[in-house]
Design a protein around this nucleic acid. Structure first.
Length: 285
DNA sequence: ACGCCTACCTGCTTGC
DNA sequence: TGCAAGCAGGTAGGCG
């Protein structure tokens, strides 16, 4: 699933080739992909004529900043991909939204499972449209995301660590894969309650989240199967995962077999020795 | 605030 | 070999 490192990688690749491009038209093949504005015809009308200024990322969304200040947001969700196709490229049966660029290229949003969302929002300032990232938490890789800041947020919460890491209003950009990887790095059990962490454990978690995301980023965001970059190239395989989907395989740190449990309906992988169970009720093994 | 559930979706894997 | 069931999970929204 595209999480922060994958989305950031996509955004950087697009930043290399999209700025200056003018959107000559758009076609929507799956109406529900458009989150705003509605109906899709209005989205098409309003996006047409836009010029790409730069491409960035917020949370797990690619954010295309247009020259007039509006932003085109693309939430890749599970299987979404943004592809830059040259003139004459074969049609893609999974394309949900296709932007034709004035230079003859196409920017395609392909998304087999149709979970992804594309929106066009006014820039800051005027208008009272809900800002698309109003409820999102801090960016974990931002310099301002300090251990102290994380500590302050954790102390207020009693939820389980795994649940919190997946909560986009708590921290933006972490998904199921990097949540498990970060908890393994921090040697923290996924069911630990946030407000029970010691200062040292908080520091470990802070470091671990950032290290896991940075390593994913360094690998070109290659953590999942459906990933393709804007050239349509698949990422590297996910060999660097320490626990994710390694159920029954030995822990890289201690050799103990990795276990899989379900937390909040999400598959969760951890090492029962390195990540000791919380001494709370129901925390058997 | 939290946990739990359902819905949204389709492709891949698993099991018989 | 073929086919059906189940799994995968990001996020919104509803309920207790």
């Amino acid at each position: 699933m595209p999480e922060l490192p994958e989305v950031e990688t996509v955004a950087r690749r697009l930043q290399e080739r999209l700025p200056g491009a003018r959107i000559a038209g758009a076609e929507v093949f799956w109406a529900r992909t458009i989150s705003y504005p509605q109906p899709p015809e209005r989205f098409v009308r309003e996006v047409t004529g836009g010029e790409v200024a730069r491409v960035g990322r917020r949370a797990k969304s690619v954010v295309v900043h247009l020259a007039d200040g509006r932003v085109l947001t693309v939430a890749l969700r599970m299987t979404g991909a943004l592809i830059v196709a040259g003139p004459g490229a074969a049609a893609d049966p999974h394309a949900r939204v296709v932007f034709s660029l004035a230079d003859g290229r196409e920017l395609r949003f392909r998304d087999p499972r149709k979970f992804g969302r594309v929106g066009l929002y006014p820039g800051r300032g005027r208008r009272r449209v809900a800002e698309p990232f109003a409820r999102h938490g801090p960016e974990p890789l931002a310099p301002s995301f300090s251990a102290a800041r994380l500590a302050a947020r954790l102390r207020r919460r009693s939820a389980r660590l795994k649940t919190l890491l997946l909560d986009q209003s708590f921290i933006a950009g972490v998904g199921n894969i990097y949540a498990d990887e970060a908890l393994w790095r921090a040697r923290l059990h996924p069911l630990r309650r946030a407000d029970t962490l010691t200062e040292d454990e908080i520091r470990r978690l802070h470091r671990a989240v950032r290290a896991a995301l940075r390593e994913g980023l360094a690998g070109g965001g290659a953590s999942y199967r459906d990933y393709v970059d804007p050239d349509g190239e698949p990422g590297l395989a996910a060999e660097r995962m320490r626990v994710y989907r390694r159920t029954g395989e030995p822990c890289f740190r201690c050799g103990r077999r990795i276990e899989r449990i379900v937390v909040g309906a999400r598959a969760t992988h951890f090492c029962p020795r390195c990540q000791p169970a919380p001494p709370e009720p129901g925390a058997a093994r």
